[in-house]
């Protein structure tokens, strides 16, 4: 089957999509978007690779064991960060009391724990979409 065109375009497009997704996730506290949108873009990049090169190739670079730990780890990270806030600051997900420096508003490294939450949500959403796609396409 001659799909060199598809493979070339996907190879050129994939780094751009991944960089854009990481940008949206890391700027979640400054610009529109955030963990969910950026994670959805990252998941779309992985699914695009799986559609173009086949499910075996995509499972080789992003195996089931990795996505399993990323999915559970994302949720666990949010709960642990929230509980740290609960014990230190008095309420769930309390921000300034946890001791994470707040920085100047508008900088990339600002907002206390919010960037950490965004990264956790991004990893969770991206790997969940990949798992969903693999579960849909696997043979019975």
């Amino acid at each position: 089957m001659n799909n060199r065109l598809l493979h070339t375009i996907v190879k050129m497009l994939l780094p751009v999509i991944i960089v854009y997704g990481i940008f949206i996730v890391l700027h979640g506290h400054l610009t529109p978007g955030g963990g969910f949108s950026g994670g959805a873009i990252l998941g779309t990049a992985l699914v695009l690779y799986g559609l173009a090169f086949g499910q075996d190739a995509s499972l080789k670079i992003f195996p089931e064991s990795v996505s399993k730990y990323l999915e559970s780890g994302g949720v666990l990270a949010i709960v642990v960060i929230g509980l740290v806030g609960l014990f230190v600051g008095g309420y769930f997900l309390s921000n300034a009391a946890t001791g994470v420096p707040l920085g100047t508003p508008g900088d990339l490294l600002s907002g206390g724990i919010i960037p950490l939450l965004m990264i956790a949500i991004g990893l969770k959403v991206g790997s969940t979409l990949m798992t969903l796609f693999n579960a849909l396409l696997e043979d019975e």
Partner: peptide
């Protein structure tokens, strides 16, 4: 713009891909 970004990522990206995967079955 927040909703627009999510709509573009989920509506035009993920939903299409998942529906195409279902269609192949």
């Amino acid at each position: 713009p927040d909703v627009a970004l999510t709509e573009a990522a989920v509506g035009a990206g993920i939903t299409t891909v998942v529906l195409l995967a279902v269609l192949s079955k």
